[in-house]
Computed example of a mutant assay.
Amino acid sequence: MEKLSFEIEINASPEKVWDVLWGEITYRQWTTAFTEGSFYQGTLEEGSIVKFFDPNNNGMYSQVEKNIPHKEMKFLHLGEIYDGIEVPKDWGEATETYFLEENEDGTKLKSEIQTPVEFKGFFEDKFSKALGIVKNLSENQL
């Protein structure tokens, strides 16, 4: 398992950044950095299962381990989805966590990812771009 960390300063409130991260329309916008047409289904309540899809009905499913609005969101990734069918994976503690910390300039958004080594390059290539889109949306949308 590889631990990766990314962070970005955003000139917007934690509430605004949170809304960009998890709002239905803005989620689809910033996740284009990973896969064009990405979306999620389910609720983001602690303990619930959320499914992350690409336009071809493939993706992954995860459990919401922590949801502290405007501060922290943590997912435990459980498996992959192929043509809409869930396939459990033994990834151990494969997690994705978002931390929002208010400061005098706005918000520091930090993401920590525990990922199997085969996904490390993908995240290293794509995650900073995704956070840049979150920054742009947070600072420039009404």
Rank of each mutant, 00 (worst) to 15 (best):
E2M: 11
L4G: 00
E7N: 13
I8L: 02
E9T: 12
N11L: 12
A12F: 05
K16L: 01
K16V: 07
V17W: 05
D19Y: 03
D19L: 06
L21P: 01
L21E: 01
L21R: 00
L21V: 02
W22N: 07
W22D: 02
W22S: 00
G23I: 01
T26V: 07
Q29T: 15
Q29C: 12
W30E: 05
T31H: 04
T31Y: 03
T31C: 05
T35Q: 14
T35R: 11
E36S: 10
E36W: 01
S38P: 07
F39I: 11
F39N: 14
Y40V: 06
Y40Q: 10
L44K: 09
E46P: 06
G47D: 05
I49A: 07
I49H: 04
V50Y: 05
K51Q: 14
F52T: 06
F53R: 05
D54R: 06
D54E: 11
N56W: 13
N58Y: 01
S62Y: 04
S62E: 15
Q63Y: 10
E65V: 11
K66C: 10
I68Q: 14
I68T: 14
P69T: 07
H70A: 12
K74M: 13
K74T: 14
L76H: 15
L76D: 08
H77M: 11
Y82W: 11
D90W: 06
W91L: 06
G92H: 11
T95K: 10
N103V: 06
N103T: 08
T107K: 10
S111W: 00
S111F: 00
E112C: 07
E112S: 10
I113K: 01
Q114L: 09
T115S: 15
E118R: 08
E118Y: 08
F119R: 15
F123Y: 13
D125P: 05
K126D: 07
K129F: 09
A130E: 02
A130L: 05
G132P: 01
I133F: 09
V134N: 02
K135N: 04
N136W: 15
S138N: 05
N140K: 10
N140W: 12
N140T: 15
Q141V: 08
L142G: 12
L142F: 07
